[in-house]
Each structure stands twice: as C-alpha cells, then as structure tokens.
Measured scan of single mutants.
Amino acid sequence: PKDQAKKEIEKALRNGDEEKAKRLAKKYGISDDDWKELKKRVS
C-alpha cells in the first residue's frame, strides 16, 4: 500500500538517507507531487 511506502520513505528522509528514500519512491511508484509533499513534511 502507498501509505506504508510513504511511511518508509519519510523514515528514510528523517534519517537523512535520501538515496534510500529515492530508491523506495521509485520502487513504489511515488509521484513527484507525493515526493515533494514528503520532503516538505520532513524538512
């Protein structure tokens, strides 16, 4: 599910692991808009 994916990506971003977050986003098909939203929430 997308919500689970977003949680994992957000966690990776919080850990400062943007490479992992990007890989997860690609793997789960997270859209650019969702990606920006996640980045905003974390920063």
Rank of each mutant, 00 (worst) to 15 (best):
P1H: 12
K2L: 15
K2G: 13
K2P: 09
K2W: 13
D3F: 10
D3M: 10
D3P: 06
Q4K: 11
Q4F: 14
Q4T: 10
Q4C: 15
A5V: 11
A5E: 11
A5W: 14
A5P: 05
K6M: 15
K6S: 08
K7T: 09
K7V: 11
K7D: 10
K7A: 13
E8G: 03
E8I: 08
E8K: 06
E8T: 04
I9D: 00
I9A: 02
E10M: 15
K11A: 15
K11N: 13
K11T: 13
K11Q: 15
A12H: 08
A12L: 15
A12I: 06
A12E: 05
L13Q: 01
L13F: 04
L13Y: 02
R14A: 05
R14S: 04
N15G: 10
N15P: 00
N15C: 13
N15A: 14
G16M: 04
G16E: 03
D17L: 08
D17T: 02
D17W: 11
E18I: 12
E19W: 10
E19H: 08
K20D: 07
K20Q: 12
K20I: 08
K20Y: 15
K20H: 13
A21K: 00
A21M: 01
A21C: 01
K22A: 09
K22T: 06
R23S: 10
R23D: 09
R23K: 12
R23H: 09
L24T: 02
L24G: 00
L24V: 03
A25W: 03
K26T: 09
K26S: 08
K26H: 09
K27T: 06
K27Q: 11
K27M: 13
K27I: 12
Y28A: 05
Y28D: 01
Y28L: 05
Y28P: 00
Y28C: 03
G29R: 07
G29Y: 04
G29Q: 10
G29A: 09
G29V: 03
G29H: 08
I30M: 12
I30F: 09
I30A: 01
S31W: 02
S31R: 02
D32R: 06
D32S: 07
D33P: 04
D34T: 06
D34I: 06
D34C: 11
D34H: 03
W35H: 01
W35G: 00
W35V: 06
K36W: 15
K36E: 15
K36A: 14
K36I: 13
K36N: 14
K36P: 02
K36F: 13
E37F: 05
E37Q: 07
L38N: 01
K39N: 05
K39F: 06
K39R: 09
K40G: 07
K40C: 15
K40S: 12
K40Q: 13
R41S: 10
R41E: 07
R41G: 09
R41P: 03
R41N: 12
V42F: 11
V42D: 02
V42C: 09
V42E: 03
V42T: 07
S43K: 10
S43L: 15
